[in-house]
Amino acid sequence: MMTTRTRRTAALYGAVPLALLLTGCGGGDDAAKPSGAPPAASATPAPATSAADPQAADKTEVLASYTSMWGEQMQAYRKADAKGTDLKKYAALNALSKFEADLAHMKKNSTVIRGDLGHSPKVTALDTAGKLPKATVQDCVDLAKWETLDTKTGKPIPLPTSQPLRYVATATAEKWPGGWMITDYAPDGARTC
């Protein structure tokens, strides 16, 4: 059973999967995608904005990087290992550290992810005027098909009853020389969507 302290600790890490792994959730049987396959995403980003928006191209690129990051992250979570994925191509700094901590936690606890994580991301802020362009992505994360499997027993770990199935998460992106990178990720289980 998860204590209040454990929930707070998981929230501080800021990664949805870590919070779910600490609290537990159910399991399916999806295989990891081959590393050469395009990243899978359970939701395709909607067009960022109208063609009249001068920031439309940047918003589309930010959403593409965010969606690709999740595709690579799900590949890593399906095997509790980032080897063979392009996660570092899309996530860096705090976001990457949080996801790597999730993977270490998963290995230690013999868990892997099955199913998919639903998304409805949108760019809520974009500043391209500064030396380092930045963006904020707000996402409605959907856990309806998200499952964790205990690899020792082969049994799913159910979500706690207090875990909302849909909630808001916020990501920060920065435009680096190679493209947009997700540099931070923070779920907010108190804000449902």
Rank of each mutant, 00 (worst) to 15 (best):
L159F: 15
D184L: 04
K175T: 02
A56F: 14
T172K: 08
T85F: 02
P156C: 08
A92D: 08
P17Y: 15
L149I: 08
L103W: 08
Q75R: 15
Y90I: 06
D53G: 04
R166V: 09
S65D: 10
P39K: 06
T9A: 09
P38I: 08
P34V: 02
T67N: 15
G189P: 06
A57H: 10
G26Q: 08
W146V: 07
T23A: 07
G14K: 04
L18D: 00
L143W: 02
V137T: 04
R191Q: 12
T49F: 13
Q73A: 15
A135K: 01
M181H: 03
W180H: 00
T128F: 03
G71P: 06
A186Q: 05
D188A: 04
A52F: 15
A129V: 11
T183H: 07
E174Q: 13
G179A: 03
E61K: 10
K134V: 14
T4A: 11
P121Y: 03
Y90A: 03
A37P: 06
P45T: 06
S120G: 07
K79L: 05
N94I: 13
N109R: 14
M69R: 08
Q138Y: 05
K59I: 10
T44Q: 12
K175E: 02
T67V: 15
Y167L: 09
K145C: 06
L21I: 13
S65A: 14
D81K: 03
A171L: 07
T136E: 04
A169V: 05
A101K: 12
S120Q: 08
L126V: 01
P47E: 12
W180S: 00
D30K: 02
P187V: 09
A92G: 09
E72A: 10
P156W: 04
K155P: 00
S65V: 07
D139V: 00
T136F: 06
G118N: 05
G27I: 01
A11M: 10
F99Y: 11
P160M: 14
L93K: 15
P177Q: 00
K107G: 07
D116R: 02
G189E: 08
A57K: 13
V137H: 02
D58M: 10
S50M: 11
P160L: 13
K131F: 15
V123Y: 05
A11K: 05
Q163C: 13
G179S: 03
T192N: 07
A129G: 10
L126N: 01
L126Y: 00
P17N: 15
T161G: 14
M1I: 11
P17E: 15
L18N: 00
L20F: 05
I182Y: 00
A10H: 01
D30W: 02
K155R: 03
P164Q: 09
G189W: 12
M1W: 11
A190W: 11
Y66C: 03
P121M: 09
A144S: 14
K134A: 12
A43C: 12
Y13Q: 11
P158V: 02
P187K: 03
